[in-house]
Simulated assay, not measured.
Amino acid sequence: MTETVVLRARGLTKHYGQVVALDDCDFDLRADEILAVIGDNGAGKSTLIKALTGAVVPDSGTISLKGEQVHFRSALDARRVGIETVYQELGVAPALDITQNLYLGREQRRKGLLGTVFRKLDKPAMRHGSARQMADLGIRIQSIRQKVETLSGGQRQAVAVARVAAWATSVVIMDEPTAALGVRETNQVLGLIERVRENGLPVVLISHNMPNVFQVADRIHIHRLGRRIALVDPRNTTMEEAVAVMTGAKSPESLHLEGGTA
């Protein structure tokens, strides 16, 4: 695994009145890894991810993408540089078909006057692109013209993942992608996450599901009280040890750390 860091944050701080959501927080995502972010409710994970995706502007600290410092003022800013996010709420449009969901907000228009003047959509090109994207990720569906509302929970999640993987050029972030899924569908989504990484995109996985984390993560960022308190390799750390540090029952120094505490 390469040591190249794609997305890095240093000293991120964010206050909401007297509440400290981020407290001098650091973050590092390597170029070819699945990095899991774990932490108790209220630890500041959501604020960290929102800062990295432009949904929240930190009070202080820096964020760098591929070695260049970036300043996100909105989620659109992050999307412009290739950071795409699958939120826990999915954000798919059930009444639209798979192709319409993959190209939602990014519809392709026909070339020439049909596209520029009459604003006709290039539906064949979008269907072809959708089919190719689903095939690249190994997602099996009956037809790309299926309405998303006819799909299972795992298939809907797959459509959401396929959409971000189609447009991301730098980083894919997934917030609780297996929430409310059964065992079979969970394994399908975890396999999909691994294929996204294999296709060249680093993945940030936010999850409360420790077995899922230890199944797919290359490294684990442990978040507590608004900051990264440990960065560990799951091959050298047990699930029980990671949870103990996450909850404060053990000190970070008791673990085999990757890069030390923050």
Rank of each mutant, 00 (worst) to 15 (best):
S130H: 07
L102G: 00
R197E: 07
T238W: 02
L190W: 01
N236E: 15
V232R: 00
L76D: 12
I144M: 06
L96N: 04
S64G: 04
L151G: 06
V216I: 14
D175E: 04
Q88Y: 08
N236L: 13
H223P: 00
V183I: 12
A51W: 01
E198H: 03
T150Q: 09
N101H: 04
S143A: 11
K250N: 11
R30F: 09
R109Q: 13
E198D: 11
D218S: 11
V203W: 03
H223C: 08
R109I: 10
S46C: 06
E185P: 03
G39I: 09
R119W: 12
I49L: 08
K123V: 15
R79H: 12
D59N: 14
N41C: 09
G260Y: 02
N212H: 03
R145S: 15
Q155N: 13
S152A: 04
A75Q: 15
V203P: 03
Q146R: 14
V171Y: 00
M1Q: 02
D122E: 09
N199Y: 00
I206F: 05
F27L: 11
G17M: 13
A125N: 02
V81N: 12
P94W: 12
G11T: 01
F118W: 15
T150F: 07
D136P: 00
V37K: 03
T237F: 02
F27D: 07
K123Q: 13
V70D: 07
G17F: 12
A242T: 03
V164S: 15
R163M: 11
V204K: 00
V148L: 08
R109N: 10
Q146S: 15
I144P: 03
V171M: 02
H256N: 06
V203R: 01
R195S: 05
F118L: 15
T237N: 02
E185N: 02
Q69S: 13
G129S: 10
V243W: 00
H71M: 09
P234C: 03
V159P: 03
T13A: 14
G11N: 05
V183A: 14
I229T: 01
T186D: 00
A51K: 01
A165E: 07
A165L: 08
L90R: 13
Q142F: 06
L12N: 10
N41R: 06
R156W: 01
S60I: 11
V183D: 07
A51M: 04
R109H: 14
V216G: 05
H71D: 13
R79A: 13
E241T: 00
V148T: 12
G200Y: 08
V92P: 08
Q215Y: 03
I173Q: 06
L52G: 01
N41F: 08
C25K: 08
M239G: 07
L190G: 00
G105D: 10
E198N: 04
Y87K: 13
K120S: 05
K14F: 13
A75K: 12
V57K: 15
H15P: 05
V161H: 08
G129F: 10
R10M: 07
H256F: 04
S74N: 11
